[in-house]
Write a protein that binds this DNA or RNA. Sequence first.
DNA 1: GTGGTCTAGACCACC
DNA 2: GTGGTCTAGACCACC
Lengths: 140, 140, 140, 140
Amino acid sequence: MKKEIKILHFTVEAKSAVPVYEQVKQGVKLAVISGYLEQGDQVMSIRELAARLKIHPNTIAKVYYQLEVEGFIFSKPGTGYFVKVDHRKIQKEKQELFKKVTRDYVSKAMDLGYSLADMIAELQSMDSENMAGKTKKREK
Amino acid sequence: MKKEIKILHFTVEAKSAVPVYEQVKQGVKLAVISGYLEQGDQVMSIRELAARLKIHPNTIAKVYYQLEVEGFIFSKPGTGYFVKVDHRKIQKEKQELFKKVTRDYVSKAMDLGYSLADMIAELQSMDSENMAGKTKKREK
Amino acid sequence: MKKEIKILHFTVEAKSAVPVYEQVKQGVKLAVISGYLEQGDQVMSIRELAARLKIHPNTIAKVYYQLEVEGFIFSKPGTGYFVKVDHRKIQKEKQELFKKVTRDYVSKAMDLGYSLADMIAELQSMDSENMAGKTKKREK
Amino acid sequence: MKKEIKILHFTVEAKSAVPVYEQVKQGVKLAVISGYLEQGDQVMSIRELAARLKIHPNTIAKVYYQLEVEGFIFSKPGTGYFVKVDHRKIQKEKQELFKKVTRDYVSKAMDLGYSLADMIAELQSMDSENMAGKTKKREK
DNA sequence: GTGGTCTAGACCACC
DNA sequence: GTGGTCTAGACCACC
C-alpha cells in the first residue's frame, strides 16, 4: 500500500491583519494537534503547500522551520518534513486551545446576553438531537 | 442631566476579505442586539464614528442607511440617528447569532476531539469559578 | 552622554561551507558571551550590519530572529534589537565554547605529535613572558 | 610484505577563500610533519588523490611540484612521489605550527575571559581523565 | 530611521 | 523530486 501524503485543507486570508505565515502555522499545528496528521506522516512539501495556498514557498519554509523548532515536525533534508508526535506536548496544546475557544465562545455569548446556564442548556439540547440520530459521531 | 452618546468600541480590519462596511454594520448591529445601545439612544454621528474607525464617512453613511432600512435605527434629519428597538426582531437576531456562535464553537471543539459532554463540563467549571468571587457579573 | 552602538568586528567568509548566517550568528553570540555586548546594549541594526558585512539584510534578520528565540537578544519593533543577558545561560555557553576550543587545540597539537604536557609547558612559558611586561592584561 | 600506500584523510573546502591547491598543500605537508607519512613512503598518486578529493589532477600536480621544490617530497619519474624527511626542516615547521595553533587557542580563550591559568588547568584536567582509562592513547 | 512580512527567484546538496 | 541558503527588493507599521 502506497504511502499517501495527507492534504491540508485550511485556507489563508491574504488580507488579514494576522500574518499569512501565522495562519499557515496554526493550520498545520491544528492538523497535528487534532490527530489528522499522525506520528511519522509526511507533511505536504513546501512547494506543494505553497502552490495550494497560492503563497510563496519561502513563507511555508518559514512556517515549517518554526514548527520544527517548536517540535511538531522534523525535516529530512532532500526528503521532506515529517510529523513528530509528543503526546505530552500535544495534549497540553490541545487543552489550551480548547480553553481558548471556550473562552472566546463564552465571551461572545455573554455579549449577546446569554448566561453560562443558557450555553449549557443549548449544548445539552444539541446533545439530545444527536442522541436521536447519529448517536456516536465522535468515534472515528 | 446631559444626554451621553455611547461610544462604539468595535474595531475594523482594513485588510480583511469581509468588506469594511459589513464589519461596521455587524458592529453597530451587535451593539443594538446586545442591549448596549437602548431604545432612543442617539448613535454616534457619522463623522465621529468615521474618525474613530479611520475610515471614510461615506462608508458609515452607507451602513446607517442600511440599518435604517432593516429597522434597527432611524434618522431625525438634522439631529442624528437613534436606536429603534423592536424586541421581536432583536430577539430573533439574537437567537440566531447565539445558535451560530454555538455551532461554531461545537465544531471547533469537536475537531480537537472534545465531546459535548466535555464542553458542558468546561462551562460548568467556569460557572463554579465565577460563583466564588464576583458572582453576578452580568447584571450591569 | 550619547548612547553609542558598539560595532561588531567579525568578518564573514562568503564561500565557506558553513552558511553565512551561521557565521554571523556565532559572531554576534560571541560578542554577547564574551561580554563585549552588555545587558541592554542596542545591537547594530539589521541594515547596518548587513551593509558592513556586505550581505543581504534578510540574512541578518534571520540571524537576529534565531538569536531572539535562543534568548540572547530581543527586539523592540521600530526601535532595534537589544542584548538580553542571562548570566546562567551565558556562563554555560561560555564554558562549552571554552571546552570546544580547548578540544580543538588539543586535537591539532596532538596531530603534530605534542603531548598535553608539551601544551601545558608552552602555555606556562607564555605566562612567564607576560609576567615580564604587561602582567595583568585581562582586567579591562 | 606488500608496500602499502597510506591514504591521506584531509578534505578540501571548495567554497573557501583559501585556494584549493593551498588546502591540499597544507594537508600533505601536515601528513609529513606529523609523521603520518615517513621517510621513503610513496605518496598517493596524483590521479588517486585527485579522485578522492574530487578535484582536477592538475591541481594535485601543482601541489606536488611545489612540495618537491620545498623539499618535502621527491619524484621518481615513472614511479611516483616519495617522502623526503629532513628532520631539521620538519622540526622547525612543526614548532612553528605548534606555536601558531597555541597562539590561536590562547587568543580565543582570552576573548572568552579565560586566563592562561584556566587553560592550563583545563589541559591538566584532560590529562587526568586520560590517566584513568586509556592511559597511553597516543603511542600508535 | 527601525524591525516584520512577503514575494520572486537563484543555486546548492541530497535523493 | 526534496529542503536549505541567499540575494533582491517591495510594502507595512511604528518612531
